[in-house]
Design a protein around this nucleic acid. Sequence first.
DNA 1: TCTGGGGTCCTAGGACCC
DNA 2: TCTGGGGTCCTAGGACCC
Length: 417
Amino acid sequence: MLALVDCNSFYASCEQIFRPDLRGRPVVVLSNNDGFVVARSKEAKALGIPDLEPFHKIEHLLRQHNVTIFSSNYPLYGDISDRVMTTLQAFSGRIEVYSIDEMFLDLSGMPGDFSELGREIKDSVWQNVRMPVGVGIAPSKTLAKVANHAAKKIPKCGGVCVLDEPHKWEWLLKRMPVTGVWGIAKRLAKRLEDLRIYSAWDLATANPKIVRRASNVNLERTIEELNGRPCLGLEDVPPAKKQIYCTRGFGKRSDTLEPIQEAVALYASRAVDKLRAQRSLVTTLHVFLHTSPFEPNFVSASAAAQLPYPTDDVRLVAALARRTVASLYRPGHQYVKAGVGMIEILDRRHHQFDMLEPGQSVQSDKLMATLDAIKRRHGKGAVFLAAQGVSQPWYMRQKFRSPEYTTRWTDIPCVKT
DNA sequence: TCTGGGGTCCTAGGACCC
DNA sequence: TCTGGGGTCCTAGGACCC
């Protein structure tokens, strides 16, 4: 058996941890650049605040209902996610962190009553982290998703749902549209309609071979999973990323090259941090730059660029990204977004060095290790490339950002006596 | 003024290999 | 008369996830 633990309105709940005055009140969290709503507390949902709606279109609605607004604060959310994960380790030795707010737990060989266990997990996360969660328990990941959904939607479940017998999941699947199933969105649902598959139960009882012909092998696996036969294993060791991207819209549009190059240097440096964290080297970059797709005369350009040798030296990567974006830039356009991707990555441990071409120098390795050490000790912003600029007027908008309560010394909450 | 960011997997088709 | 079989690698595009 597997459990899926999914945090309720995760970002909004993170904000409420350090603002208990906002419990039971409408709260929303905006995407990067304060673009649109990505999380809503239960109360905000009840007010009819739509999800994924541009902020500027619904700002009046939020003000009118006195909704508290936050910009997203990823250092805080990442840290809270780690704390939830740590709490869950007491319940299983094998955990897959599926996303920032979802974790799968292997419960195989666990004795006792799964409903009881589910409630213990839920209470324990609330007790330790003050994060409300739903717990779904079932024989496969896809069914655990279904169970989790039910745990949250059906009041009688009280946040915990166990699907340990076929008749239980049959009852739920008959009442669930096929788009409620993990891996099935609009396009696929449209194709399934032609096979007269409308509900999750229709899919579970469909002929797997015929369904596969209409899409691909994943959907055939989904059918197996919906029948309680697991096809998807638990990935408790996250595989290394095959691509690493850092892309971001500018807080202020730019028609000149310099701010764009500064932004791209920052994105390159963020990407190198992730690259080094998984001990990889990059050989090929992908850089792009574009204007707003919501306005006329949309302009977009991208290019791949080769590093001279496999590297994780931020200076080389940032310099190449800056040169590449300069080659994409044309005057007379209002650019709103750029990005740096590492599209070819090697594992440092398995990398074969070239006998004739020199690779990255030992001095580079040492310098990068020193930068890492400084950042670990004093925070990410303690040392950076001059190419990133200092005033950074292009930096994303975060008008409503909360403090980094748990990850920055100066932001630690004070208790008034 | 104003619409995110970061990924993964699959398939089809072509080129190429022995 | 008659023209194999098995495979890899790459790319573009589509679809999905949170």
